[in-house]
């Protein structure tokens, strides 16, 4: 077991182990999975891009708000769902507090979908897959589809006449495509577990991936906007011919040299 494995900070590994060296690990440090994992994390989203206090100027638009509102609604959905899970499936039928938490869960889901659809429209008409952002678009789309499944199993878990009606209607459609034996909407226990465990896990992982990719590649600029200055250590996204043209118009900023990057980044960003 190497010193890196035991956590001791000695010799040549000291620099990277203390976090002062964020570059690629060398020598004995490459054997340590923690060093390799930290290096991978640093490459995935460089320091300073996780929780930025500045954004590109073009983000100052209402259309860019809906992604973060969707995320906020998602957190309320998760928290209220957690409380409902503690109370049990029938709690909201017999308790005023349970009824309130159930309503919070329902209305936060409505807000979640309302904002997610507007976010989807905004990004679709902006062609948000530009500039090597295809995976960002795909994770968002799959998370949207997964959310529909989660909401569907939620409606089946209400344990009331509505859920009975929805399940008996849905079973025919699901049987017709041959998944009824594996995804039995008439089995409330199975549907409840899909709703509180499997699907939230899938959607949660996709949402985290989506946010990491947004932070890694940056927020997609409008068609006529000048792309922000590249940050050291991150490949500058290719924003397509429109962005290239934007940088060619008179008065537009030319791609800066590394020494000019901090000043250029300040010019293209707005204060918090």
């Amino acid at each position: 077991m190497s010193s890196a494995d035991t956590g001791a900070v000695t010799g040549t590994e000291t620099g990277s182990a203390t976090g002062t060296d964020t570059g690629a690990p060398t020598g004995a440090a490459t054997r340590s999975w923690t060093v390799r994992f930290r290096s991978w994390l640093t490459r995935a989203v460089p320091e300073g891009q996780w929780l930025p206090d500045r954004q590109p100027a073009y983000v100052r638009s209402w259309v860019y708000v809906f992604g973060v509102v969707t995320l906020a609604a998602f957190l309320v959905v998760l928290l209220s769902g957690l409380v409902l899970a503690v109370g049990g499936a029938a709690w909201w039928h017999v308790s005023r507090v349970g009824h309130f938490v159930n309503s919070t869960h329902l209305w936060s889901v409505q807000l979640f979908f309302f904002c997610m659809v507007i976010h989807l429209w905004g990004k679709f008409f902006m062609a948000a897959w530009r500039g090597k952002r295809a995976l960002t678009w795909i994770t968002g789309t799959v998370a949207f589809v997964g959310s529909i499944g989660t909401a569907f199993t939620g409606y089946l878990s209400q344990s009331n006449f509505d859920s009975q009606w929805i399940s008996t209607q849905a079973k025919d459609g699901l049987n017709s495509i041959g998944v009824g034996a594996y995804f039995n909407v008439l089995n409330p226990g199975q549907m409840l577990l899909w709703h509180v465990m499997l699907l939230p896990l899938v959607v949660g992982i996709l949402v985290v991936l989506h946010i990491v990719l947004v932070r890694r590649h940056g927020v997609v600029p409008p068609f006529d906007a000048e792309p922000p200055a590249p940050i050291h250590g991150v490949e500058a996204p290719d924003d397509g011919p429109a962005a290239a043209q934007a940088s060619q118009v008179p008065g537009a900023q030319v791609p800066p040299l590394p020494a000019q990057q901090s000043a250029a980044a300040e010019r293209s960003e707005v204060a918090r």
């Binding site: 209402w62 809906f66 309302f114 507007i118 905004g122 707005v270 204060a271 918090r272």
Partner: peptide
């Protein structure tokens, strides 16, 4: 309502902060 909010989000100006 979603369509109306989407159109308003495109048209309404975003409030600038005092520093800007």
């Amino acid at each position: 309502a979603m369509l109306a909010v989407f159109v308003l989000a495109l048209l309404l100006p975003f409030p600038a902060d005092r520093k800007s």
